[in-house]
Amino acid sequence: MLVGESGSGKTTALRLLAGLLDPAEGRIEVDGETYFDSARRLSVAASKRSIGYVAQDYALFPHLGVLENVAFGLRAARVSAAAARKRAAALLERFGIPGLWARKPDQLSGGQQQRVALARALAVDPRLLLLDEPLAALDLATRRVVRAELIRLLAELPCTTIYVTHSPAEALIFGHHVAVLENGRVRQSGARDELLRHPRSAYVAEFLGLNLFRGVVTSRTEDGLARVAVDGGELYLAEDAKEGDEVHIVVDPREVVLSIERPQGSARNVFFGPIEELAPEPPLGDRLRVTVASRPALIAEVTRAAASAMALAPGRMAYASFKATGARAYR
């Protein structure tokens, strides 16, 4: 899973891998096979690499029918017409596109086009599959349905898949291993849960939708908490950081509790401020991300039910709180 904002170099990375573009220097190796090595002046042509590539707009051949599109790679590899058609038909059947074989791509829905493009790339058994924003070309309503199907299809694939997206949510749902790209460089890469727990930069944290603070431990309380001065306020952490330590603090929005009345519980970190924004969290369906302009500002994630019970709305004053144990700090 390669995630980054537009212009961060996601598509370029895929084109480099596919061999549609050559880097100035470096080495590209897939599954033990070297495809590019500037030191050896080696560059294997795109057509000789075992890499499947599904472009953002799918790039289906407009003059060929669905079956011919899927059979294209096999025919190019001199597989007999009958065998190529048989294999293409089997793939289309598996991808849930039976009976549209003579149709031209422009007669298909966006979701169908995507599956045909996927089948076309997989027909030649690539070792590595590259997907460039596979959901971007779809309208919102289709995206929801197609996303679920795509998760199922990708889980069944025998080959490694690199999935490029600008959406952190998509990255977190699909990705087992996530790399965050910024300005052409990988800022951080690792297992999804590792990134969520330990984002190493404000960019990664913000991008993945976590609360990230940077601060200095000012003192320790009698009950063993670290008091940390952050930009705009003060936090309490159940961490054994020493006075003067510089720390990064991550608070998962799901750890932040919202309330209209002052919370009575044991939460040590309580902040008060106007609600700035309520944003639906589409991938998770029934949740909302609520930004509270307290000092410091906090993002909380609540269910829609809870939000409507509290009548949360922009401008309404609310308490945002989390336990000292709800914040994770690391140096």
Binding site: K48, Y53, A59, A76
Partner: peptide, 9 residues
């Protein structure tokens, strides 16, 4: 480009 990634000369 798509044709090239599909092994077409």
């Amino acid at each position: 480009d798509a044709a090239a990634t599909l092994r077409a000369s």
